[in-house]
Amino acid sequence: MSFDLNLIAESLPMMLMGIGITFKLLIISGFLGLTLAIFLLLMRISGRWYLSFPAQVYIYVFRGTPILVQIFIIYYGLPQFETVRDSIFWPILREPMGCAILALTLNTGAYVSEILRGGVLGVSKGILEAGSALGMSVRQKFIYLTAPIAARLALPAYSNDVISLLKSTALASTITIADMTGIARTIVADTYAPYEIFISLAIVYMIFTFGIQKLFGVIERYLGRYTQREG
């Protein structure tokens, strides 16, 4: 079997035209997902069953079903309902991009809230007791003690989820979105050369993953500067 380097050289620039879409999916759903995750976390640790129970159910549903199925339900399923078509969200849900961002956001939000909860549980009880003994309120302890320490503890697992989200964006190609994977699939359909195209696509994702790893390494060193004895 031959490996057509020319084909890679020709198709790589075309696939890279999808970078913008891939990054749009990653950044918007990453940001919205993190926001959602913080709300879910606050609900879960509120100590009130009518807040924590719905959050738990939500997390269970979105972790318990494949993200591809979630994308299909939102893209193919929701427009069946007239109320959805009449709602103010229709301009977003009508577009595949809106559906993909919604699905990725809802999915990553469930995972990230559990990651953040891990960080919160990792904050030592003694530190919070010291805050109480100084007269700090529950809210003050959360903002000034729990949140910054938990963020540092959750960061390695969170970076893992961002990398996972990057690769989940490829699923958007199944609902007609021309991200890098979408473009690659089109090229494969034209050239019948899945081997060359998908391998070069895989390498592009790996390069981005490398960049994300490096970025989180920098953030980790910054947030973790208090864990180093020197400097």
Partner: peptide, 14 residues
């Protein structure tokens, strides 16, 4: 009422 703990409990991130 001020309190001092066995394990110091300083805020490690500050």
């Amino acid at each position: 009422v001020g309190m001092v703990f066995q394990s110091f409990n300083l805020f490690p991130h500050m």
